[in-house]
Design a protein around this nucleic acid. Sequence first.
DNA 1: AAACCCTAGCGCACACCGTGCGCACAAGAC
DNA 2: GTCTTGTGCGCACGGTGTGCGCTAGGGTTT
Lengths: 236, 236
Amino acid sequence: MSAEPSIPSVWAREAARRDPQGLSRDRIVAAARRLLDDEGLDALSMRSLGKRLDAGATSLYRHVANKDELIELVVDEVYAEVEVPDPAGRDEWRDGVTAAARSLRAMVLRHPWVAGVLGQVGLAYLGPNLSRASERMLGLLTAAGFEPGEADLAINTVMAYVIGTVTSETAWLSLVARSGKTEQELIEGLQEVREHLTQTPAAREHNDAARYRDDSFTFGLEVVLDGLDTRLRRKA
Amino acid sequence: MSAEPSIPSVWAREAARRDPQGLSRDRIVAAARRLLDDEGLDALSMRSLGKRLDAGATSLYRHVANKDELIELVVDEVYAEVEVPDPAGRDEWRDGVTAAARSLRAMVLRHPWVAGVLGQVGLAYLGPNLSRASERMLGLLTAAGFEPGEADLAINTVMAYVIGTVTSETAWLSLVARSGKTEQELIEGLQEVREHLTQTPAAREHNDAARYRDDSFTFGLEVVLDGLDTRLRRKA
DNA sequence: AAACCCTAGCGCACACCGTGCGCACAAGAC
DNA sequence: GTCTTGTGCGCACGGTGTGCGCTAGGGTTT
């Protein structure tokens, strides 16, 4: 019985061997990111996250103030994935912005939980990684010929378009996922409802929903870029 | 003691007099809407909503399947507030779309909790009121000269822009509200951080943040409309 | 070597959440 | 009258975020 008090320390050492240096802000954020990617926003709780790290839920609070702060940190981490190209010639700004916008959209589609968090609490507003991305985008647009003030507005426009798109896209995709039906079935059922409602038969059918989403995104992006282009020409 | 069993019925009658016809789907949705407007998304729980209606939390489930369904219903209700003008001459489509977009933005700013819900679960995708609004917008754009397929894409573009904008706006406003500081102070603090980060002094200052947001929205909207316009001209 | 403090981690507890279940009672059907 | 139907409620279950106070170990100071 005299050995019993030492058991906790044995456990601690065992745990330390498994997880090299115990908990840490970085390890927590990384684990949260994996949990979110694997199981979605609802599956993230301090308890479930603690389990992933062989730690108690409240231990996390030594390294992270809030669940909200945690999410801010994770969101900023994934923002690191969006790539904004270097500014090239004055005429290639379109390609640069296009690439950046596609990269942002791809990032959110890779981590759909981000969309669920964007509208909320005001999180994630300006971690360093998002800051960096907008800074680079600003470079892209000033190189294109926009004055600083307008470049700022232009960025907001492009970002708003992309965010709005992915918000709708992820909402739809999550509905598809939860419904169990295929995307095609769901669309057809939907058109049926709408026909009943409006009494006019719905015309268009798309046999490849994912392709349609891509095309739709591209269309809108082109529209936005055309709009920016006219602003640019109007000045010259 | 023999009178005791009748007390509940007395209460019921009392409650019925206060609240004319007891609970009902409509009354519940209306109360939820008020609660959301008054106290925000986090304040809405089945219990708090029950309290507002002098009812137990679980009584609501007789009229509403889920909290999620409830939210869908409330969201669709506020969509009724967005006004899309009738299609006028072929040249006034810009004014029509502008009015619709402003109306949608104004609605969300009136009910900021909507933004917190948009990205999530896939709720609110197509209640009758949202359906009606898009239908009317479709009319606006086909009257402008778009073919049905393109009109659909054009709607998506405009909607995505507006949704993206209000998402960012409400997130920012909620951060301002929670921080306790004024918007101006917060902006200055932010610029300071960014200067430290990028080593370049931030130039622009806006002394009226609300005005700036309006201008920014208008700028982006004009860009989108210009983009649509070029598409329209290119055809003619 | 001994005394100290600092901190990471944990368990407990609190107040709250969404919601399934079964009972009580009012209103209408026969 | 009895019977059915539907409405509301209380209870309970298994979850949530997080404050509090304890322990035990590592590092620093004497």
